[in-house]
């Protein structure tokens, strides 16, 4: 996370319009990245004004999330860690197909079923996030509201991952009130699904859940 903050600092320096000075740059970068990554949603400055590259960095930060068992939301660092460790295993098993090498976190091997669950969870959240973006853009277009694709991506991520502020009109000092009511209704559902980590809600929509 520290590295991420520093990259935002680099991104900030690139923009001639935001002259915070060295201390200010570091403070704003660390503050806002920490706020976004941990899904807090505070802001120490209106980052909507930042250079696009720095905003892209913040947007990426939205997907990281805090730790399991903390009060944060989003995808959670542990899931990414397990996923990355099992990616590292892939090329190894491509070379040695018979080898069995468990993925370990803090020395403990992770159950293969758990890895599969994590994969499914990651893919499901990315797919839902992307579909939500499409819905927001199309719905806003219908309501004659011009959202840029970046604002739409930000709004989708921030509601589904329970962060708070996004970019554009929905920035830290802005409001979601400009979105059409239908879009906001979809966002409400997605906040609900996102907070309880997707599966419990989606299960309700399968026939297998209601039949014995």
């Amino acid at each position: 996370m520290g590295t991420l903050a520093s990259v935002v600092a680099v991104g900030l320096f690139l923009d001639p319009n935001t002259a915070f000075g060295a201390e200010g740059t570091v403070r704003h970068a660390v503050y806002n990245v920490a706020s976004i990554v941990t899904t807090t949603g505070y802001a120490s400055t209106d980052y909507v004004q930042w250079a696009p590259a720095a905003k892209h960095m913040l947007f990426m930060g939205m997907f990281i999330g805090g730790m399991v068992g903390s009060t944060t939301c989003s995808i959670k660092s542990l899931r990414w860690l397990v996923a990355l460790k099992s990616f590292r295993r892939n090329p190894f098993t491509a070379i040695h197909p018979e080898a069995v090498r468990p993925v370990r976190i803090s020395e403990k091997p992770i159950d293969e079923d758990a890895i599969r669950d994590i994969y499914a969870y990651l893919l499901l959240s990315l797919v839902i996030f992307f579909l939500l973006t499409v819905v927001i853009v199309v719905d806003a277009e219908r309501g004659n509201l011009r959202v840029t694709e970046f604002e739409a991506l930000g709004a989708a991520a921030t509601t589904f991952l329970n962060i708070g502020p996004a970019f554009g009109d929905a920035g830290p000092y802005g409001t979601f009130a400009t979105f059409p009511m239908s879009t906001r209704a979809v966002m409400i559902v997605l906040m609900w699904i996102g907070r309880i980590e997707i599966i419990p809600v989606l299960v309700l929509f399968t026939r297998a859940f209601w039949t014995s």
Partner: peptide, 10 residues
């Protein structure tokens, strides 16, 4: 696989 995940959680 995602559909199966939902099924097996029930």
């Amino acid at each position: 696989a995602i559909r199966r995940e939902l099924f097996t959680s029930a």
